[in-house]
Amino acid sequence: MRNVWIIASREFRQYFISPIAYALATMLYLILGGIFFINVYFGLETGQITPDGRIVIGAMVTILLFATPAITMRLLADEYRMGTMELLLTAPVRDWELVVGKWLGAFGFMSVVLAVTWVYPLILHRMTSPGIDQGTLVAAYVGLLLMVAAMLAIGVFISALFRSPVAAFFVSLGVMLALWIVGSLASSSGTMGQLAGYLSFVDHYYNNFYLGVLDLGDAVYFLSLTALALFLGAQVVEARRWR
């Protein structure tokens, strides 16, 4: 377990010196800031600000679909490309410790990025009376963290498959969009619809967490998706030793 922590903390610190992370955070905060400003500005014009704490979450989820593959693309692909994988795999570190460590580092970084966006609801809370519904907000953020955990795990898994970070980015993006879009099939009837509904990010997030409902089933969905992706990632690292 200590190895997981050592790898995670190196990865976490790495994000703060890598341009990708800063570019991503800047873009995210600019867009969210713009959306927040427009909402509040027009709200003031009409004299009516909707006291909804989730003001930026909808936009944020969409951005995260693209941002998480960018965050995870180089995690393992770059190690393969630079040859440093040889170093890590000949150190006394288990394959799963490496994969989980990488994921945890990315998750730590994204948690910091997401924590900062909490300022928007805070400002909104001060501007409105009786303020925003804190419970709904907390549920929405808990769900968001769970969803990000799953997205990052998928990204880590796919990063293990490639030597090129760019390839890992596009494939991860494809998988996330698929898990996103599959929700639209959920409205169709029959087992296909049910299955699509079960697989969909949208169904598990917007239909529950976003509405302030903390449902165990949805938490299990995201957690088991995370665990499955990390397990597959470790299997891929193991399998690549054999080639």
Binding site: G83, T84, M85, E86, L87, T90
Partner: peptide, 15 residues
């Protein structure tokens, strides 16, 4: 084995 071996790969991978 990995605990007891010091290994310098041909490509000298470094960060």
């Amino acid at each position: 084995v990995r605990r007891r071996v010091g290994y310098l790969p041909e490509t000298v991978p470094l960060y």
